[in-house]
Amino acid sequence: MKRRINFTQRKKIPRDRIVLNLMEHMGQKSFDAGFNFQGMGLPDHAAVYVEAYHKTDYMRYPFGTVSQIRKPDTRMGSLGRIENLHFRVKIVDESGNKGLILAVADGIKPEAPPQRRSILPVDFKEMGNQIWRLSFDADGPILELNSTIPFIRDKAKRDPRLFFYIFPSVIRNILIHLIFYNEFDSDEPEEWHRDWLNYGQRYAGPPPSVLEREKDSFDWDEVIQWIDRVVTEFGISHQDEWDKLIQLEEKG
């Protein structure tokens, strides 16, 4: 068995004393961290840093001190390889003129954000001369794309023209279907109803308070305006893809 001698007296922070979760909000990735340094004999004034790294990417986040943890802005936008990041937690004594490492935990893989479930499954099938159509089953809408179009799978992911030709209409159709044809029930909304209304809310704020058509206070115009707003804001939030589309169209 190999013997390891720790000349530096540097402590190892047990992994179970650190909680590190990746988060995602509006496409912006960040992380949240929690620590338990109690009983480790670390001085209160020692600084706490979290370092995110992978390959040539590196970023350092100051989390205050052992006795006063303060969460900094943990957005990771300037890092290049977010998917594979590892983290390191360092406790540093900065009381002298050089920072001395008192304790460290390295190679931490963060907990992924809760598994994201697609609210719009995609199916590829032959469908004559249509590019796309929507079908609905008990679990909600399914986007069907015509599998006879060459490279449709790749185009669906990357082609900004297809993106803007399809998705604004898809969103509008689903919301109209949900409210006008699917008998939305605010007391017991189906899961996919809730998902899609939350999705719309991300872009256009809360939907109108009454979405049941049979109620007197149902306001048709208000509902249509909200759906319009969702579709408009969806387009605005994908400005990069729109710019690509314009450039492609300019080139013919």
């Binding site: 530096t8 540097r10 050089k98 001395l100 490492i101």
Partner: peptide, 17 residues
Amino acid sequence: DLTYDLHAMSADEILLL
């Protein structure tokens, strides 16, 4: 690197070490 917080140091500080 086992002792010092090298990532926080400037080039001058590292050269002095």
